[in-house]
Amino acid sequence: MNEFEDQLREAMHRREPGPGFAGRVAAMATGARKPVRRSNPVWRWAMAAAAACLMMVTGVQEYRRHQGEQARRQLLLALQITSEKLSLVDRQLEKVEGIVQGIMVDERTKQ
């Protein structure tokens, strides 16, 4: 046995739990009280903070998803209208071409 081990023994001395521990545990054991879980307030705060963060992140993600979906619908509508109007222009041109071709045929038959 050396001094270092003595120091170790001193460092490892037994400690008592918080006051009333035995009474609480005995009450829990006989069903008079429910077992206490994770009584550390730091842990409780961490859990609450984690839950709040999770809710916030989920909320932000849901908002972004909703915003993105709305923007997607708007873009689709804009592209659909653009497409329709370009088709309209194309149809108008076809009509004009038809008229011009008709006039040219008439001119040839006259000649």
């Binding site: 739990p17 545990v25 829990m28 206490v36 994770r38 009584s39 550390n40």
Partner: peptide, 14 residues
């Protein structure tokens, strides 16, 4: 960790 040690001790006695 005091809280964890107490919880462990509590579980052992239960």
């Amino acid at each position: 960790d005091r809280a964890m040690a107490e919880e462990m001790a509590q579980d052992v006695f239960l």
